[in-house]
C-alpha cells in the first residue's frame, strides 16, 4: 500500500531501502523496526551513541546477520533472502569496523582480488600469467588514489594501521560497488589521515552511493547529505546536518548517554 505508492512515486530514486528492520539477540532488541531510504548518489551517514545499533543495521543491510524481521530492497528488488556474497556481487559492498585486509597477500593482490571477481567465471580456472598481471593499470591507479603506490609489493599485514584502512577503501572501490557501506572509515586514524580519507570518500562518492557509520562529526558535517540518528535501535531523527544540530532530542541523545560528548556532540569539532 504505502510502500507501493512510494515506489511508484519515485521508482529509481532510492537505491537501497529497508523496511521494519528488526534484530533480536536472545530477547535483547538491538534494532527495533528501522526504516531507511538511501537516495541514489547521496552520502548517507548513520550516527548515534555507542550501542545504538549502527553496526548491527550495517550487518543486517549487507546480510551478514540474519534478520529477525523486516525487508530489504536493493535497486527495487527484494534482496532479503540473498547471501552476503550474492548481494556484494550485485554491487552492495561493505567495509569493516576493524580494518579488514588479507594480511598474507601483497597490497596489489588485495586489490586484484576485488578487481577480478566479476571476471572469474569467465576467466579460465587455471588462468596463470594473464591473471597474475591482471588489471595492473587499475591497481596502480587505485593505489595512487590512496597514496599506496610505493607499497604495492609489501605484505598487507605489515602496513601501519592508517595505510591498512586506506588499502581497505581502495579494495572496496576496486569492487566497483553501486553502494559502498563504510563502517567507521576514520576510526583510529590521525588528523591528516582523517582528512585524506574524507577527501577520498568524497571523490569515491561521485557516481555511487555511500552509506557510512561514523563517529567523527566534523567529517560527517563536511560530506554527508543525509544523516540518520539512531538511539537504542530506533531512528530518532533524520535530515541534513544543520537541521539535526538544532534538534534538541539529538543533542540530548549524545550528551545524555554518551560520556564522550566532547567528541561526538554535533558541531563540537567543527571548528
Amino acid at each position: 500500500m504505502s510502500q507501493a505508492e512510494r515506489s511508484r512515486a519515485a521508482p529509481n530514486d532510492c537505491v537501497l531501502e529497508a523496511q521494519g528492520l528488526r534484530k533480536e539477540f536472545r530477547g535483547f532488541v538491538a534494532v527495533a523496526g528501522v526504516n531507511l531510504k538511501i537516495r541514489r548518489g547521496s552520502i548517507h551517514a548513520l550516527i548515534g551513541p555507542n550501542g545504538a545499533g549502527k553496526t548491527t543495521v550495517f550487518n543486517l543491510l549487507t546480510r551478514f546477520l540474519p534478520l529477525s524481521s523486516g525487508r530489504i530492497s536493493f535497486e527495487s528488488e527484494d534482496v532479503t533472502a540473498l547471501r552476503p556474497d550474492q548481494l556484494a556481487a550485485r554491487g552492495l559492498v561493505r567495509s569493516f569496523q576493524i580494518s579488514a585486509v588479507f594480511a598474507n597477500l601483497s597490497v596489489a593482490d588485495n586489490i586484484r582480488l576485488a578487481l577480478q571477481r566479476p571476471m572469474l567465471s569467465a576467466m579460465r580456472f587455471w588462468a596463470g600469467d594473464k591473471a597474475a598481471t591482471f588489471g595492473e593499470d587499475r591497481i596502480s591507479g587505485l593505489l595512487g588514489q590512496v597514496g599506496l603506490e610505493s607499497f604495492a609489493r609489501e605484505r598487507a599485514g605489515d602496513l601501519p594501521y592508517g595505510r591498512k584502512r586506506a588499502l581497505e577503501i581502495a579494495t572496496t572501490l576496486a569492487a566497483d560497488p553501486k553502494v559502498m557501506l563504510l563502517d567507521e572509515p576514520t576510526q583510529g586514524l590521525g588528523h591528516e589521515d582523517v582528512d585524506r580519507v574524507t577527501d577520498l570518500i568524497r571523490r569515491a562518492a561521485q557516481g555511487r552511493t555511500v552509506v557510512m557509520v561514523e563517529h567523527n562529526m566534523k567529517m560527517v558535517a563536511q560530506i554527508a547529505d543525509t544523516i540518520t540518528v539512531l538511539r537504542r535501535g530506533e531512528i530518532i531523527a533524520e535530515g541534513a546536518y544543520q537541521e539535526l544540530a538544532e534538534n534538541p532530542e539529538v543533542v540530548e541523545a549524545y550528551l545524555g548517554s554518551n560520556r564522550r560528548g566532547d567528541r561526538s556532540q554535533p558541531g563540537a569539532r567543527a571548528s
Binding site: T62, F64, R83, P84, D85, Q86, A88, A89, V93, R94, S95, F96, A100, V101, F102, A103, N104, L105, L113, A114, R117, P118, T171, A175
Partner: peptide, 16 residues
Amino acid sequence: LAIRDNEPRAMSLGYD
C-alpha cells in the same frame, strides 16, 4: 588464501 586470511572480507567482495 584470502578466505583463510579474512573470510568475511572475501564474502563482502562477492566471493562465495
